[in-house]
């Protein structure tokens, strides 16, 4: 995995997408695409060669948890790293996301350092597993 990795950022708020995109650019990841909910994101994921998915949970249309489950259920996408970046803070939700196969969970409001740490951690774990 390199800085050429292709990210898909899914959030219903354009400002939050922009914030995440800017942070990713600052971290050196210049290839970032946006989607505003799971229903828009899923066909993009299926059609494109994305390497990393960052998704919100609470969105109109398809919520992030459903997107995560759909990704894990799709043989071609099942192994994609998924980071959930959300304001959802209930313990049972975090447990549910973990059970659905999320690779990282960042709670909003978040810092640039936290986002970097979680992305690095996910990539490191995957590199070790490969």
């Amino acid at each position: 995995m390199s800085k050429d990795m292709k990210f898909l950022v899914v959030d219903d708020f354009s400002t939050m997408r922009r914030i995440i995109k800017n942070l990713l650019n600052d971290l050196g990841y210049g290839n970032v695409t946006e989607a505003d909910d799971g229903a828009t994101a899923l066909p993009m994921l299926q059609a494109g060669s994305f390497d990393f998915l960052i998704t919100d949970w609470n969105m109109p249309g398809m919520p992030g948890l459903d997107l995560l489950k759909a990704v894990r259920a799709d043989a071609r996408l099942a192994k994609m790293p998924v980071l959930m970046l959300t304001a959802e803070a209930k313990r049972e939700q975090i447990i549910e996301a973990a059970q659905a196969g999320v690779n990282g969970y960042v709670i909003k409001p978040f810092t640039a350092v936290t986002l970097k740490e979680k992305i690095d951690k996910i990539l490191e774990t995957r590199a070790n597993a490969a």
């Binding site: 609470n58 948890l65 959802e88 803070a89 209930k90 049972e92 909003k108």
Partner: peptide, 9 residues
């Protein structure tokens, strides 16, 4: 509601 999310605390 759990599936769709509650929004920020």
């Amino acid at each position: 509601e759990t599936r769709r999310g509650y929004g920020p605390v």
